[in-house]
Simulated assay, not measured.
Amino acid sequence: METTNDSTGGDFILVGFSERPELELILSLFVLIFYTITLLGNVTIILLSILDARLHTAMYFFLRNLSVLDLCFTTSTVPQMLVNMWGGNKKISYAGCMVQYWLALALGSTECVLLAVMAVDRYVAVCWPLHYASIMYPKLCHLLAAVSWSSGFANSFLQSSMAMVLPRCGNRHVDHFFCELLIIVKLSCIDTGPTESKMFIARLTILGMPVSIILTSYVCIARAVIKMHSAKGRKKAFGTCASHLMVVSLFYGTIMFLYLQPKDNYSQDQSKALAVLYMILAPTLNPLIYTLRNKDVKKAVRRVMGKEQV
């Protein structure tokens, strides 16, 4: 039997939980509520960090980048997900699917690196407080942000290029809510072992290197905190790092469990549940984590609203 290479063209069918429509309805309401909160929370952080001069620091510059990432990531997947859940048509075009998995991977990879950059920023803030402004100067911050974005998109280009050339032989049913790269690869009608191995190495690199930087930064921070004689100093250092640690734990915990587990343990239902946490819950909680305990942001809100004199 001849194998035809139809790696381009044609629509895909996003299966989701279509066999359980009542579950899809409940899930769609959950997604819509959290997506709205995500938009409001991240847009608020972006506007505050631009409008309030006191937030023109390295920490809030990187936080603004994180909010832009979260906005772009959720918007690249959630609207299509809601359309498919609410309508009978579960189709997505080939071009739309390709853009979706390319963007999702690029933005997720960028966030991996950006969180490592933010860990270095926290290290400098705790361990070199008197030299913080001179070390984390604007030009360096812009360079680090550029490295984060470029490395994320380069990783996505590399892995997406591998997936695009695989023949699918008419397989177009994507057992997910969105076009996720690993699912697209599994639609291929040839042995994808070598391709998946290369992708695993790429994922391990884009995850492993930032994690190493984060761990190293926090080991140094922990040593500096232990040497502090002031309880007030320790409390301030903990407050400086707590929000970032919570975001890192939520993001990397989900990502590592989802993408670095052995192939034999890969459960599609598990993947769908984790994808909801990864795509919806994390971007929603990030602005809340950074604002609820942050006095600078609360004061910035009052200043922008004119309720506090500058």
Rank of each mutant, 00 (worst) to 15 (best):
S7Q: 08
T8A: 07
G16T: 08
R20V: 10
V43N: 06
S49G: 01
L51S: 04
L55S: 01
R64F: 01
V68Q: 05
D70Y: 07
L71T: 08
S76I: 05
W86I: 02
W86T: 11
Q100M: 15
Q100G: 09
L105P: 04
A106C: 05
E111W: 00
V113Q: 05
V113N: 04
L114N: 01
Y123P: 03
P129C: 00
H131M: 02
Y132T: 06
I135K: 00
M136Y: 02
P138L: 08
K139T: 11
S151L: 13
F153N: 02
F157W: 11
S161N: 11
C169A: 08
N171I: 08
R172I: 03
D175T: 15
H176M: 15
E180N: 11
L182F: 11
K186I: 13
S188R: 08
I190M: 12
T192L: 07
P194E: 14
P194S: 15
S197D: 12
I206L: 09
M209R: 06
I214L: 08
C220F: 11
A222F: 03
I226C: 12
K227L: 12
A231D: 05
A231L: 08
T240W: 03
S249Y: 10
F257Q: 07
P262N: 12
S267M: 12
Q270E: 03
Y278T: 14
T284E: 01
P287H: 00
I289E: 01
T291L: 06
K298M: 10
R302A: 15
V310R: 06
